[in-house]
Amino acid sequence: MASSLLNSEAPCRVPALFTGFEDLIAAESTRHGGVSPAPFSSLNLGINTADEPANVEENRRRFFAAIGASTYPFASSYQVHGTEILYATEAGRYEGYDALITNKPGLLVGVTVADCVPILIYDARQKAVAAVHAGWRGTAGKIVSRTLTRMQDQFGTRATDCFAYIGTCIDECSFEVGPEVAEQFESAFKREDANTGKSFIDLKKANAHLLVNFGVPEKQVETSSFSTVIDNRDYFSYRVENGTTGRMLAVIGLKYEQIVEG
């Protein structure tokens, strides 16, 4: 399932896959609607950038307001391109994790990206969620499979009950890599340019394969049709902007109402 078109200069978009779940908040940001000047223009949500902290704080306030989550606590981590997973039970800025899972109503979890793949997962039966940061290292390390395994162990999650969104990232046509990276991916997820001998990796396809291979029904997987490189006007790209740019957020969580209804 491919994602729908982006509204012009919207600060965020909600994956179509999740719109039918009234108990869920899930969205990814764009680069529009913030206060940051160039080169972070304008909705930079990255704490670990050279942008003014006050700008990032205001941008985050605007983003969470736009998704109806102004009062929600938020858990995230300083990401290290690894495969460690945190079971988050309270708000905080953690360190060393590239995926967060929770089943706590009213708590949002999220990851920051600017070319890497954000993946949001919702277990509709056990009412649990996950936010995953999958760059090429995380993808090669099968972090999304590890996250689903952790959800199985922690919540009793079944893959068939899961809905997953593969968010906006660098696309295959733009992700040129050297042989040391290419050799870590199966042939189905890489392409070699006959003229240059360079390899290109499809991170979206590789992560979709991991999800489906784990048992998530293909019809319950949505992939963003946007690219941080091709659609750089709407999204931040670390590669295009030579490392000096903002970050997007992809967040997911159960609404507060679940406390009452549960």
Rank of each mutant, 00 (worst) to 15 (best):
V229G: 12
S42Q: 06
L249I: 07
K198E: 04
A99K: 04
R247W: 01
T112V: 15
L108Y: 05
V177C: 04
A10F: 12
E186M: 08
P179I: 02
Y78A: 13
L211R: 00
L120G: 08
F175S: 11
F163R: 04
F18D: 07
S70H: 02
L43P: 02
G167Q: 05
T196Y: 02
S41Y: 06
R61A: 06
T157E: 05
E257F: 12
L108C: 04
V111G: 11
S224C: 09
G246Y: 00
E84A: 15
A54E: 11
G46M: 02
V181S: 03
A38W: 00
E28R: 14
K142M: 09
T83C: 15
T102P: 00
V144W: 10
A65K: 08
V14M: 13
F236K: 10
A54C: 05
G33R: 07
D161H: 01
G96Q: 01
N213G: 08
S41V: 03
A65I: 00
I259E: 10
S187I: 15
V240P: 04
L45E: 03
A65E: 08
N213Q: 08
D171P: 12
R247P: 09
P37E: 01
H81T: 12
G178F: 04
Q258F: 14
Q220N: 10
G68Q: 00
K255G: 10
S174H: 13
D153A: 14
V56R: 06
R239I: 15
C116H: 08
S36T: 03
E90F: 11
L148F: 03
Q154Y: 08
V129L: 09
F163I: 02
N7C: 10
L108D: 05
T228F: 00
E192A: 04
G141A: 04
Q154T: 13
T30Y: 02
V14A: 07
C169N: 09
E84G: 13
P53R: 00
